[in-house]
């Protein structure tokens, strides 16, 4: 798998396992939270990582941000070997990367003023003079829809949606080329969610650095609104990846199909039938042999229980790991064609 031209971030064969259990007479074990994950994020575009709890999506974010070291794999960013950079160079390069977390209440220091919060990355990277920094903060606040009067206030004085705007302003302060958005709207009210999603779309278009987004989420509706491409994760593996619209209109992996059928409000017969067979997900600590999805899969065959499917890549660039893929014509979901 070679990265197509225009790729900003390229992840290949990423692995990360954690130790678990042990003590109290139980043997310690290694659990693979991320297993052989590969994807590309094109410059200025958005890739969504979608999955349920335990899928490894947040671990991938932390690996890409170098908040964790992977056990194996390669990450190239802007043509650099991102994992092999010497410490000083990595710190210099970090200004090209921003991050927005799910819960602005816990990711913003409550004792700092908005100006201190948003200008902190500028100080760390020694960007601008004091007055230039202040000017940039005012500009950033305006870009995220906050008045200059917010400068001297603290996070506690703002609503959840406004706090997330502050977090976005901070993430964009160094004019990054790449921003990790880890469930950025999941903690927000429905009516505020659309505002913040629109803001993220506008900023991608309107910020001079045209940041690419790695959007981590679980809400397929949200993902459909923001991401050109989507990778679906199940128990640490990318089970399907492709253009968002195609993937949702005609999923090839049965897990993607189950996610779509489970959307609340989907009451058509095919969706209800698919939901009925799906039990609880296995845990990454007790992976079944073969395909990790086979115990919940309506199309599972004997080989799925023995052998793990390798990746199939279609000419269109869609890829999936499944011996028995869904029909490619999209007969599953007539409503979304």
């Amino acid at each position: 798998m070679t990265a197509p031209p225009g790729t900003l971030l390229s992840v290949r064969g990423l692995w990360k396992s954690f130790g678990t259990g042990g003590g109290w007479g139980r043997p310690a074990r290694r659990v693979a939270a991320v297993a052989d994950v590969s994807f590309d994020v094109p410059a200025g575009k958005t890739l969504a990582l979608v999955g349920e709890s335990g899928s490894g999506k947040s671990t991938i974010a932390r690996l890409v941000l170098q908040l964790l070291r992977p056990d194996a794999g390669a990450v190239s960013f802007d043509g650099l070997d991102w994992l092999g950079l010497p410490r000083a160079e990595l710190n210099r390069q970090r200004r090209k990367v921003g991050v927005v977390f799910q819960d602005p209440a816990s990711s913003l220091n409550p004792r700092m003023t908005v100006e201190e919060i948003v200008s902190e990355p500028l100080l760390v990277h020694r960007i601008g003079t004091a007055s230039e920094r202040r000017e940039r903060v005012v500009r950033l606040l305006a870009a995220v829809g906050l008045p200059a009067a917010a400068l001297d206030k603290r996070p506690g004085e703002f609503s959840g949606g406004q706090r997330q705007r502050i977090g976005i302003a901070r993430a964009l302060a160094t004019e990054p080329r790449f921003v990790v958005l880890d469930e950025p709207v999941s903690a927000l009210d429905v009516s505020v969610r659309a505002q913040v999603l629109n803001l993220l779309l506008d900023l991608q278009e309107g910020t001079p650095s045209r940041p690419a987004y790695l959007f981590i989420g679980h809400d397929l509706g949200v993902v459909r609104a923001v991401a050109e491409r989507t990778a679906v994760l199940y128990l640490g593996k990318v089970v399907e990846e492709g253009p968002t619209a195609e993937l949702f209109a005609a999923p090839r992996h049965p897990y993607t199909a189950l996610l779509l059928a489970s959307q609340p409000g989907r009451r058509d017969g095919a969706s209800l039938a698919r939901r009925r067979v799906a039990g609880e997900p296995a845990s990454a600590a007790a992976l079944p042999p073969g395909c990790p999805f086979h115990p919940r899969c309506p199309s599972a065959r004997p080989e799925c229980r023995r052998e793990e499917p390798t990746e199939t890549v279609e000419p269109s660039g869609r890829r999936f790991r499944c011996f028995v893929p869904e029909a490619s014509t999209g007969n599953f979901s007539p409503s979304s064609t």
Partner: peptide, 23 residues
Amino acid sequence: LLASLPSGEDAAPGRRLPALEGS
């Protein structure tokens, strides 16, 4: 509230959602 749901049928990457202002 209904209009601002991103699951709307015409949702597409990059298309702005009709959002309620304020909170």
